[in-house]
């Protein structure tokens, strides 16, 4: 299982008929079991790229090679749950083969045990995200895609959910692609950080992190972060590296 991406360009036509370049040359590769993190400013085309990689958007110049028929687990930025199905049904519909022990384990880790029979409309955003995560992990994905899974959550909740995601990823060694605009999340979760420029997106740097996730100390994390900030600030097109 290996992912190779070479997107030469991707353009959108706006309603007014103008052409907008979203991606202007992005190439990278991910190995089996590796967690890649795409970091870039908001609106730089990250979500567009994920849609291309998931096979949802065939309209681009370039090449994406991933094994055909690979099971994909996708956590969208908005949770995209079925509002008319309960939490448990939402997960089971995506993963009809998942058995009860596996589901209870997932619900346990993601703190969803009490919410199995709730409808998504009754959940907070943080809980809805967790359901989306449970759904993505329940399919036992070969390729896991996480689009800003920690956005719009308060700091304490985000850090707890980040630990939960790390625990789930570590237990599986699944090829993962995470998108975020938060450098801290990127360094704590990723094996490889791919920095993207503002729109139209190009790759600014492709930085592997050699220390395993669990062994990274605060000092090392801070060092990698400052390295990343240096790279972002050093690029000709300035951006805010929040």
């Amino acid at each position: 299982m290996r992912l190779e991406v070479e997107i030469a360009s991707k353009t959108f036509k706006s309603a007014a008929g103008e052409q907008h370049d979203v991606i202007a040359g992005v190439a990278f590769a991910l190995n089996a079991g590796e967690v890649g993190v795409l970091v870039g400013p908001s609106g730089c085309g990250k979500s567009t790229m994920l849609r291309i990689l998931a096979g949802l958007d065939p309209d681009f110049q370039g090449r994406v090679s991933r094994p055909a028929g690979a099971r994909i687990g996708f956590v969208f930025q908005e949770p995209r749950l079925l509002p008319w199905r309960s939490v448990e049904e939402n997960v089971r519909l995506a993963a009809p083969l998942a058995d009860e022990p596996k589901l209870s384990a997932l619900f346990e880790i993601l703190e969803l045990k009490a919410h199995r029979n709730h409808f998504p409309g009754e959940l907070s955003l943080g809980l809805a995200r967790r359901v989306a995560l449970a759904r993505a992990f329940a399919v036992e994905p070969e390729f896991l895609i996480l689009d800003e899974p920690l956005a719009s959550l308060d700091a304490a909740l985000a850090s707890r959910l980040r630990d939960e995601i790390a625990m789930l990823i570590d237990g599986r060694s699944v090829m993962t692609l995470l998108v975020t605009h938060d450098v801290d999340d990127a360094v704590r979760l990723g094996d490889r950080v791919i920095l993207l420029s503002p729109r139209p997106a190009r790759v600014l740097a492709d930085l592997p992190i050699r220390t395993p996730r669990s062994a990274r100390g605060e000092v090392e994390i801070a060092a990698i972060k400052s390295e990343i900030m240096r790279r972002i600030d050093g690029c000709p097109t300035k951006q805010d590296g929040s």
Partner: peptide, 23 residues
């Protein structure tokens, strides 16, 4: 958005109709 979700998770035709479209 729900259509895309159903595509990514490869929901079978019938389940997609019954649980995503019909409601």
């Amino acid at each position: 958005a729900l259509d895309e979700m159903a595509t990514v998770f490869a929901l079978p035709r019938w389940s997609r109709f019954r649980h995503v479209i019909l409601p």
